[in-house]
């Protein structure tokens, strides 16, 4: 088990959110979409220019810019 930032995750890698370091509007938007500690996620892929990133959360697909993914700490197997 290793803790990394979401930006560092590779395509198709899975993990579990452990912490969201953002507060205010960004933090709220991220959490409102169900990205709360304990939620499993999987990186689905990245846009052609490597930003934003698309991830699978619960049963839907969400996109975030890399600079926003920097606030999300994920625990990955390895």
């Amino acid at each position: 088990m290793r803790r990394i930032l979401m930006r560092q995750m590779k395509d198709n890698q899975s993990g579990t959110i452990v912490n969201i370091k953002a507060n205010g509007e960004l933090g709220r938007r991220i959490r409102d979409m169900g990205l709360v500690p304990g939620t499993p996620i999987k990186i689905q892929g990245r846009a052609p220019l490597y930003d934003p990133v698309a991830l699978k959360v619960l049963n839907f697909t969400l996109t975030l810019r890399n600079r926003e993914a920097d606030f999300i700490v994920v625990e990955v197997d390895e």
Binding site: L26, I30, D32, M33, F60, L62, T63, R65
Partner: peptide, 9 residues
């Protein structure tokens, strides 16, 4: 504005 956007099916 945060780009926290859903890609709907």
């Amino acid at each position: 504005t945060p780009f926290v956007m859903e890609l709907p099916p």
